[in-house]
Design a protein around this nucleic acid. Structure first.
Lengths: 197, 197, 197, 197
DNA sequence: CATGAATGAGGCTTCATTCAT
DNA sequence: GATGAATGAAGCCTCATTCAT
């Protein structure tokens, strides 16, 4: 994994981000050290500070980049869909596949919120709320249209999100099921629960 | 020179467990220090070692105790139930309320698995699997009895568990809904999804 | 090695001395801990303080007891000898065999002098000097009688003592040579060096 | 915040080695602390770790360096000598003077063997054996040439080495005798013992 | 006389960060 | 932009010792 010594410029920053993602995912932000990061990248510890100001900034950078991509990709996935039901279907498919592909970003974005200092916490949690609100809005629209039965839209949304997000905990790329199959099964569960068709 | 009047033997151990639970929940196991723990308990750092051998043992002790109680309580909650449907209903109600009440134990039992060294990891994950298998068995029985439609019982179980467990992330005791209301809504969602009744 | 728990009285002190000797010999006084000692004896750390006042006292006790026995035994061994040559022969034999049998006491009495606090250091070194003076006196008498050629009696004594004491570093009870054979060879070397007979 | 003007790179390492040698000699390896070492060198404790990886490595480094120099110097001292007798004379002179000059290195190389972990122990003891074998070889050659009377060459070598090495225990540079005088007296004792000429 | 829990100091080591070169 | 050596704080853990029970 270690890059060749003497690598320069933006490629170093990329390597730092990739190695940082891996290390934070594997050990947790607090438990991972800049020594490990430097070793993985193939530079000395001190050199890292040419690329970020502080360990906290490394984390925030990763999380912010992730959330921006996530929100942007969701908008792209939802745009073509018209009705609430169709939108929900699109949402589930998008969320499952995205969370399978960006497993590590997603995980640290949940687990390392508590490592953020207050100002950064506010920013990232705000972005996450924006994402949740997309789903809540869909549910509320579906209820208004008489298509969904939802007692509390937020609670339902949290439940659905938790279920879908859980995927990145246990899904294995070469396991029994494909991402599509998982998405399909969860779509059915979201719409119909366990009730026999 | 000697210890302060109060806090003898087992009472100290209890205080350590309670404070440890709180600190691990709040900051994460790696980020929490024995200095903090000792301060919270009101003893010197070194004195902690009269009650556990290593920081790792503190964590394992908490997790093991939690998992034992969880498994035992589940068995008690399921015993009276007969059919698969009834059992599932009991499972959901039990899981939601238990996870609301023991919010912190549950959370660290998910989030700190990676802080366990290999031997301890095996033990705790084994106990967690036993818990999951209870639900999988219920789903399979319900499918066999023609009461549930389930493509993959394990995937369904993981989805349900994730949804229900998510509760301990956002639930606030004095919030909009009571634990019973949440349990009721999630029971409906598990059985019927969003499909209008 | 651990004694049965609950042992009482002077037998405990004996066990402490024996275990202490072993541990100090194996690890050094600073490196050995009272926890190890207590474990070896089969009691709790705190209980040790019913038998000595301080770790330092344990060491001093061992060294003092050793030096007293050594001096007393030497006197017994030398008494019957008359002439300087005969006395030297007796000294060498005594020193070699004693140092082979009490290997550990002898070793720590050399190596742990620096662990003694000033007052105790003075006492123990004084006793050691007394032992050395016995040999110096023999050498001086032998020179006066014209039987030994010695430039500086103290330097010669130190050399002889070092040579003989070295035995406890490499001698193995079941090795190539018996203690008697070693004593014989060293006696010859002391008297004649390497000069062919 | 940054370091004080002086003391760069290799100069710091030299200072650490010198101070380490002194402290280990004075207090023993286990009893000496890195706090003391850092204070002696004039840097922070943590900074020591820019120069060695563990306390153990500091010790091994010192001992290895010493043994290499010792072996190399011995070879230089012996080279010009031809016969066994002449070689033995050179050996004694070399050993006594070297051990007087490098008193501290020699001492810790004997006394701290037990502080080495198994791998390092093997290495250092191996080097010491090589040194001893030089003397054993000389004795055996002398015996073969009919010039020395030696019952067991190894035992004789250990005795001679112990006698000569003892010098670094009691020799004082400004004492009664010069290093040359000591070497001369010991040479005579090795060859002729106490037998009057 | 033994126990177990406490103290407070100190052990080695790692950390994020700084900065002259 | 990279290096290597520095800082100072903090990490976990062990120590000898004390003392109520």
């Amino acid at each position: 994994m270690a890059r060749t010594a003497g690598s320069h410029g933006p490629r170093t920053m990329e390597a730092i981000n990739e190695a940082g993602l891996k290390l934070i995912y594997d050990h947790g932000f607090e438990a991972m050290s800049l020594r490990q990061l430097a070793a993985e990248v193939g530079i000395q510890v001190g050199s890292l500070y040419n690329h970020f100001a502080t360990k906290q900034d490394l984390l925030v950078g990763l999380l912010k980049r992730h959330m921006e991509t996530l929100l942007h990709s969701l908008d792209e996935a939802l745009t073509p869909a018209a009705g609430a039901e169709e939108q929900l279907r699109a949402f589930v498919a998008f969320h499952v596949t995205y969370h399978i592909v960006r497993k590590r970003e997603v995980f640290i974005c949940y687990s390392e919120l508590r490592s953020l200092d207050p100002a950064n916490y506010t920013v990232i949690v705000g972005m996450r709320r924006a994402y949740e609100r997309r789903l809540i809005a869909i549910l509320e629209r579906g209820r208004a249209e008489g298509r969904f039965t939802v007692e509390d839209a937020a609670v339902a949304a949290y439940g659905i999100l938790a279920m879908l997000t859980g995927v990145c905990t246990w899904f294995r790329p070469n396991g029994r099921l494909t991402a599509q199959q998982v998405a399909a099964q969860y779509t059915r569960m979201v719409f119909d629960g366990l009730r026999p068709g």
